[in-house]
Write a protein that binds this DNA or RNA. Sequence first.
DNA 1: GCGACTTTATAAAGCCCCTTTCCTAATCCC
DNA 2: GGGATTAGGAAAGGGGCTTTATAAAGTCGC
Lengths: 417, 417
Amino acid sequence: MKRGTSRDIRTANRYEVLRQIIAASPTSRQELAAATGLSLATVATLVGELLDLRMITEVGFEDSAGGRPRGLVAVNASGGALIGVDIAETYVHVELFDLALNVLARAEENMRPGESRPQQVVSHVATAAGSVVAQAGVEAARVLGVGVSVPGQVDRATGISEYAPNWDWHDVPLLDLLSEHIAYPLYLDNPLRAGAVAELWFGAARGHGDAVVVNLGTGVGAGLVLGGGLHRGVSNSAGEWGHTTLVLDGRLCRCGNHGCVEAYVGAPGIMQNLSELFPHSPLLHPDDQTATIDALAIAVAANEPTAVQVVRETARYLGAGIANLINVLNPEVVVLSSWVAARLGEPLLKEVREAVARHALKRPLAANRIVISPIPTDPACLGAATFALEGALQSVGQRNVRRIASAGARSRTAPSG
Amino acid sequence: MKRGTSRDIRTANRYEVLRQIIAASPTSRQELAAATGLSLATVATLVGELLDLRMITEVGFEDSAGGRPRGLVAVNASGGALIGVDIAETYVHVELFDLALNVLARAEENMRPGESRPQQVVSHVATAAGSVVAQAGVEAARVLGVGVSVPGQVDRATGISEYAPNWDWHDVPLLDLLSEHIAYPLYLDNPLRAGAVAELWFGAARGHGDAVVVNLGTGVGAGLVLGGGLHRGVSNSAGEWGHTTLVLDGRLCRCGNHGCVEAYVGAPGIMQNLSELFPHSPLLHPDDQTATIDALAIAVAANEPTAVQVVRETARYLGAGIANLINVLNPEVVVLSSWVAARLGEPLLKEVREAVARHALKRPLAANRIVISPIPTDPACLGAATFALEGALQSVGQRNVRRIASAGARSRTAPSG
DNA sequence: GCGACTTTATAAAGCCCCTTTCCTAATCCC
DNA sequence: GGGATTAGGAAAGGGGCTTTATAAAGTCGC
């Protein structure tokens, strides 16, 4: 059991203030204090720290109601860059963000089915990372860090990919391999947690103490935000909701079990729902999940009856599974994220809400909202980049970066210079 | 989103130290520091506070390896009393504990099926509470508080029973009603959370950051310990695992849904498992859950084949349900608690472990242990009393109870005396 | 146009934590 | 009886956050 120290409070407050600034840039210290519940003085020192780090800048003044004008601060977008890497079964996405978390450059590497050796994956990542830095034309020194999201079970402390189901990796020292090609600080975790952190900082989970980010892609899982922070579990593998049993002795799942949620609501599961209901449907593109989901999305948006039925059938399972999460965890918000959720969008959401209402208990249901993720880009990339941002902020607390009057940003070193 | 303050750290440390003292009484400051990871100085001040509160006492010395002997402290059992109340569908249990959480007195009131009005329940509680105080012969002033566990959804802040399924209560101001009869400080919550707190302080969850306390009684639920503390959820109704779907479109549950965990592994569910497998079994006592479970427990202990089969069938459902919790939450330990678990004991545990192993993912499974609760008495009473204990400790931090040299315990008031 | 009132921002002081360090107390061993 | 050793307490130090005081920068009114 880890013990909390007063520094953790500072770190949490620093996160909170920066989050708020990114969300509502430009903003004043007053507004920040009101939004965070901190005192003006604390906000002022935190803002001072962030100014020293050149993560934010003063951008002018705002009239007050008959007094000294409020100084405004905003994210210093060009003050640094963050790289987010989303390693998936068939591709590697890399995005380079500025500090406002806008995408400045993007690169994608496709992996052929045979390519499963760690070295191959690492080299794709290195290539793409090099590419985005070059595209955006940022100096290497400005890159604050690289976050990497890799599927499966990850030990973020040691940087080891303990188990990656797609490629049958076991205890691959991924961070070490990556660090041979990439000189920036590296942060490793998995897509569930990346998605959760992305929603926590920039998405629908902002300001909520308890939230669940449901990831609907090829694989299925849930990122858990509990008590205002990410819940990792004792071996950093919490959130494997995709492999919880929903239909005992039900459909075979790729994990080897029967009746898992993923077997019904992951992209392959949805394809199976479709093919069981309408084996000859023109929507069905065997061997192409993306095409099938796309076709389904277009058809359901056009209110095509068979598509509606498939979405409804999917929502029947998904709703029951989400109701399980609501009953157990009692979260304030459930966010549907990842590409399947993004494409099926509102029609899916509507059916899911109805299905959840049939299964969840009244009180937890009443306290909960279900939404589609408002994040437009790849949430795993954004979340991975956010890990890098958190890492950059973390290091502030290490040494005493005290503001010495007008010493500016170099106060980190001895005040001799 | 609530914000943490440095006082919370102090409170958590105070809990931790007292927990440790209760668990390993008598003990030395050295041992406490080692066990809690706190510095000797901090332990010394916390021990000082607890001594001032008369919750612990100095009980002698212990030889050290050739130096000054270690001072020993132990719980001052007679320094106060705590009352735990477990309100259930058919009875009210009240136990009076000393500060070492030994039961000093016990009272039980049975409620007839028709008795469901809040006033009736309250009067049973008041009677029983009066009885235990009289039995134990403790002075009223020594009673530090009364914890009350009531089924259903509870708002512990306002003391309102928002919803109690058995009696169809809606928003009953239970705490107000109780306070008309009971003068001690009152603390209200539900049995799931009471059970979890009991395990966290005195049972199998001690020292674990993430644990799940599975409650197997007539009703079924889970108390969640996450990040070292109780997880309540946004509307204080987390843990309703009994009403998560395990068999979509399965057996009808009393909540109105189909295929809930509770419908298979609660006492009535187990009876149904039995009657479906062996409709004419002599183990079956229709209309008497307790007798049936007792008979089943005796038979399975004697290795009676039909009983074994019923337990195995039950464990098939229970194991899948627990595996769901393990996959989602990745806890260090799962504790099986409440009377059904206590009676079926080891045979159930063995079958459950096998069933869980079939469903849970390798990594979270490997990090997890499943045990039967080591708490011998009614865990809801103990947990409720623990809420009262926490309440008594909480109030320490309110005013500055500074130790002024030899001012003793009265330093709470102005030092004029 | 200048003083008074407002509002914002920073500095200082105070309080709450925990830890480290130093010193005293109490034994054991030689 | 004098070290060596271990325990316990007091003081100092380093973080944090908040409240209070002060300086800075406008607006408003006479």
